[in-house]
Design a protein around this nucleic acid. Sequence first.
DNA 1: TGAAATGTTGGGGCG
DNA 2: ACGCCCCAACATTTC
Length: 473
Amino acid sequence: MSIIVWFRQDLRLADNPALAAAAASGKPVVPLYILDPDMMPGGASRWWLHGSLDALARDLRALGAPLVLRRGSARDVLHELAREAGASGVFWNRCYEPDAIARDRAIEKSLASQGLDAASFKGALLREPWEISTAAGMPYKVFTPFWRALAAQAPFGAPLPAPGSLRAVPGLATDDPASWRLRPSRPDWAAAFGDVWLPGERAARLRLAAFLDGSVRDYGEARNMPAREATSRLSPHLHWGEISPRQIWFAAQARAGEQPALAAGVESFLRELGWREFSHYLICHWPHMVDRAWKPAYGNFPWRRDESAFRLWTKGLTGYPIVDAGMRELWRTGYMHNRVRMISASFLVKDLLIDWREGAAWFEDTLVDADLACNRAGWQWVAGSGADAAPFFRIFNPVLQGEKFDADGAYLRRHLPELARLDTRFIHRPWEAPPAALDAAGIVPGKTYPLPIVDHAAARARALAALAKVQRR
DNA sequence: TGAAATGTTGGGGCG
DNA sequence: ACGCCCCAACATTTC
């Protein structure tokens, strides 16, 4: 009898409770990843998945139990493989998205009906969403008290070590990952991803160590400066579970312990980890917020249909440099700095009045760190419809945000070569640049770089008018 | 983890 | 010398 360990968003060996429990059973272990055509990740995320599975397969091979890759409906694959491998049970770590919860419930029941032992574990969060509630026994709706309650439960149990070795079930068929075509060929829009990213558990661990040795020191200030690259960039590793929040928590706390000067940076970094927890917590308690406004009043907000404006936004051709730089960074590298995500999202929702769900879907297709819970909660935060969200009337001015967080325009110059030579005084507002400055920079407004597709002041007034309509109901 | 509008204060120019 | 006005600079309110 063997145990199937069903890997999903936990592509790691260390601190993997499902894998650890299977190894501890003493039975042979069948590590499995299923590509389910009905639950396909977005394009950039698939690029990451390819690399991550590659790394996981290598690490598992070294432990003696090769990774089995299968394509199909998760339930069918599990039953079939359980028969082939003579499995007595299937172990996995829990996911918290509505579709995944529904799938896992059904599979659990179906496995049990066949006499198989289906067991799930906590691997993706510091605490289960149902383990944190207010004094009144209700789920938190505001981040700060949630975060205090969560932190009060620390420490969260030391991370588990990776199993030393595994007994395998020989002779199981596996797909050739190349046949899954997770990475694009022509056109290869991911050509630059490899310069920036290295998927896999080992790379995640190195990334964390480098961050705790470097940028964490003044993370509190620098994390808002997109040109500084002072963030941890752990998000894609976290999404695929190549590293666990518990490992991050412990490593960061240990670092603050040995070097007290880092304590403030560590605290604000862990607070961001807290936002990740909060997003999963919210989605788990209010699954409707994946595709509907968390606040009912926003349910009939008068969004505008404007495909041409949406397309210009996706391509980074809005004429607002900080927005365009962000959208270009996203397309080229599969990532966008968080400050810029907020600005570009605010622009789509408030300046263009386009439904946040359209923006969320674009991000989910283009971000290597695309995570349904974080992304949807983030968009609803920007749109003002979420829990503990920024009020709708809090509208970012893309020029002021740019000037505040990228004062010298270094981020713009990196991602918008057509503006690179423009005088810093005008780089966040090129439409105000005098002809001489434009000439000197080789810019022809409307030709080499677009004029603004909306006037921000007018767009702001339009957004506030739309909000007033909603509130009157 | 806003920005803009509006209100208040105080220094200085100027008749 | 005095009052008036202007307008930064800052604070508060509103969206």
